[in-house]
Amino acid sequence: MTTLIKRTDHGDIRELQLDRAPVNALNPMVCTQLVEAIDEAVAAGVGGIVLSGGPKVFSAGLDVPFLLGLSDRDALRAAWEQFFEAARALATCPVPVVAAINGHAPAGGCVLALCCDYRVMADGPYRIGLNETQVGLVAPDGIQRLMRRAVGAHRAECLLVSGELVESGQALAWGLVDELTDIGGVPTRALAWLEQLLQLPRKPVLATRAIARADLVEALHPDNIRLDHFIEAWNDPDTQAGLRALVAKLGK
């Protein structure tokens, strides 16, 4: 089986790198392996995890051409469920996870980053956000909650309705990411932040973290995703037209 998640240990921290060229598009295999890699890291007793991508793209989000090729509703539902399982694995991870956003992070890439404890992004013309409306999709309530949690209710509404992807400098100003650094140093800076956190008393940090992140975990509860409703909307003519326009644009 092709390994799509690279594992690198840095002392008490394990870096998990999305490794599906060219843009780390999230298909079920990537998502399944990410869940497995998180579980393995926790079982190994790591103090924390760095989730990275690159080069120049952290993750371009869901593999839309793959999804459009699924004619069976059950297969489509299973693919989306696996993505949400990956998001939940990050959100419920019992140890801190830092997103090393070394490049663009639209749509599903942004969702994964929002599920992490801290976000370090490459400084420069790299964009992040939830652009679902631009391709004919409606972000589920639970995903909208993740955006509101990061940037506040009104700013989240503006970004979600417009589907705007913002450059890293604006993302920092609005709280969508926590700090910027040069693209080559993103994983290193993420590692340094996590190392500093791990110097604090472990049990109080983890207990406080669990309380602070309860709303994040709740946001991703299946009741707030309503996956069956989402799958029904997937076949709406407006949605299909938007998705196929995206695929045509990517093919140019």
Rank of each mutant, 00 (worst) to 15 (best):
A87M: 08
A75E: 15
D12P: 10
E40D: 15
I38L: 11
R119T: 10
P65H: 04
V64P: 03
D12A: 13
G124I: 10
A37G: 05
V120L: 00
A107S: 12
R14V: 12
P65I: 03
N27A: 13
A25R: 15
N102E: 13
Y126Q: 12
D72H: 07
V97F: 03
V23H: 14
R73D: 14
F83Y: 15
I128N: 06
S71N: 13
F84V: 09
V135L: 00
N24L: 03
A37T: 04
Y126D: 13
L137M: 12
E15G: 09
T32F: 13
V35N: 04
F58W: 10
L67G: 09
L18I: 07
V42E: 07
T32D: 12
V57I: 15
A113C: 00
M29I: 13
D63R: 09
Q82Y: 13
A43R: 13
F83L: 14
R20G: 11
S59M: 00
L70F: 05
L68S: 01
A21Y: 14
I128P: 02
R73A: 14
V64N: 04
C116R: 03
Q33C: 06
N24I: 03
A78I: 11
H104N: 15
F58Q: 10
P94R: 01
F66K: 12
L90T: 02
R119D: 10
V111T: 10
A113F: 00
P55T: 13
V35L: 08
N131C: 09
V42H: 00
L68A: 05
V98T: 04
L26A: 10
G103K: 02
P94E: 08
G61A: 01
E132I: 03
R127L: 13
L18M: 06
P96D: 02
D74E: 14
A21G: 14
E15W: 07
D72G: 11
G124E: 10
L90A: 02
P106N: 08
S71A: 13
E15I: 10
F84M: 07
G109C: 04
G11Y: 05
M29Y: 12
A41K: 00
F83H: 15
T92C: 11
G124V: 08
I49F: 05
L34T: 02
D12C: 03
P125D: 15
S52Q: 06
A79K: 01
V95A: 08
A91H: 01
G45S: 01
A122R: 07
L18H: 04
